[in-house]
């Protein structure tokens, strides 16, 4: 089985752990081997949360710099920061709604221009899908569904090899029943984004 190496970068609180859980469930439903590795601990304190997910025939749960097949970014400046994890062949899917770190507010840094960031990523990599996932999440009913919007876009960009049905089934199984409908809406809004 082909190996597919996916990195998810997010800021604590953006829900990337739940996104990883949905992908794990979809892998289980699709009989796809999967291992993942997460760096925990700083999530609640505004730090960066990174998940490495390896699908297919590989034993390691970790992804070396330059070897990610897909990068899913929950925050644009974090997507840019994670580019050294990618090569020119990496597929990139990113939210473009910014969440500036507090260092910007206290004048220890300047938040990069979104268009400039998109330009750089386009120059450096094979494919970029950049869109305002926060806007779609709000449209789905809650900013908290942004992680699921991004999963819809990830599937649309063929960043994972699951069927749409299996992904939807995974969302139903993993998310809280009260929010399933909203999450499925979010997923479909993400899936409708032009790849």
């Amino acid at each position: 089985m082909e190996t597919n190496r996916l990195i998810i970068v997010a800021v604590g609180g953006q829900g990337n752990l739940l996104a990883s859980k949905v992908l794990a469930e979809a892998a289980l439903l699709s009989d796809t081997p999967m291992r993942m590795s997460e760096i925990h601990g700083k999530a609640q304190r505004g730090g960066i949360v990174e998940s490495s997910i390896v699908f297919g025939d590989a034993a390691s749960p970790l992804i070396t710099d330059g070897e990610a097949d897909v990068l899913l970014g929950f925050e644009p400046s974090e997507t840019l920061r994670a580019l050294p994890r990618c090569s020119k062949n990496t597929k990139i899917i990113t939210n473009i709604a910014p969440l500036p770190p507090f260092t910007v507010a206290i004048g220890l840094g300047v938040y990069p221009d979104i268009e400039e960031m998109k330009k750089i990523i386009r120059q450096e990599t094979a494919s970029l899908m950049a869109f305002d996932a926060m806007k779609l999440a709000k449209e789905a009913g809650s900013p908290l569904t942004m992680n699921i919007v991004l999963l819809g876009a990830l599937l649309k960009a063929k960043g994972v090899a699951f069927t749409k049905g299996k992904m939807e089934e995974a969302i139903k199984r993993v998310t809280k029943p009260a929010f399933t409908e909203m999450n499925l809406k979010a997923f479909n809004l993400g899936f409708a984004v032009e790849a």
């Binding site: 700083k42 330059g66 990599t125």
Partner: peptide, 22 residues
């Protein structure tokens, strides 16, 4: 031949995001 990763040295500076007190 190792994979060549993207060289970020010419990117605009990205503000640090250290963990912070809540």
């Amino acid at each position: 031949t190792p994979a060549t990763n993207i060289d970020s040295s010419k990117f605009p500076e990205i503000p640090q995001r250290p963990p912070n007190l809540c």
